[in-house]
Amino acid sequence: MSDANPFRRFLARPNSDPVKSIGMAAAVAAICALIVSATAVILRPAIEENRLAARSGQMSAMLESVPGIAELLDGGGIETFVVDLATGRISDTDPATFDQNAAATDPERSTALSPAVDLAAISRRENESLVWMVRDGEEIKLLVLPVRGAGYQSTIRAYLALEGDLNTVAAFTVYEQGETPGLGSRVAERDFLSGWTGKQIAEEGDIMIDAAAGASGLHEVEMISGASVTTYGTIDMVHFWLGENGFGPFIENLREGTAWP
């Protein structure tokens, strides 16, 4: 009974009382913070699981769409490596525990990019990156590179799968984007992505891939009308990540056979 009294006395104070104002504010803030934090903590594992499932679902869906990969996957499966981007060599970091997103914001495991080279507007680039390969013995059949860049209003994340010549696009899958629904978000739809298959990224060492309305030729993908900034976002990020500040050195080393330490 006496426990209820201080509480009721507090509630009985007039609303203009400063103690009551502060008390109400603190009480509401505390209860709401508790509810939000509890929800966040309880649901975090479920959300993480969803995120990972969505991502790996995207990867498998993309791989299945590439002709001829299915048999190779049965045979050898897909291998994961961690690549040191500066040297272009496979590093000895364990891919199973490597958190690339954390590395991208860690000042010790990433490099700041000057605006002149930051084609994808990502400001920091992690020093190491995951790559996936499907190999037939020593021969690379498929190389999958994670790429990301700034779109119109969000970061676009995608997987770029290159065929054995490391130049022709086998598949391009956007697995995360927050662009304008119905417009920029079409960059994640099959219609746009299927236009990448068969295109060639570079010609004689120069990255040539571009977007245009009414795309023709080996180096052009179809521009999404009404979403040019988003489409150019995907182009710019491929330019960056396949260039000398991205996977460029690694791809060169793969061609020369010096990618493994």
């Binding site: 504010a25 939000v36 966040a40 479920a46 969803n50």
Partner: peptide, 30 residues
Amino acid sequence: IPNQIRIILQLTIIATLVIVADQLLQAFAF
């Protein structure tokens, strides 16, 4: 609810509900 802080209190309650709804959506309808 004291008059001077009514907006902030209302907003806090609304924002809490929204964050919870958003988390639930991410967990069950990703």
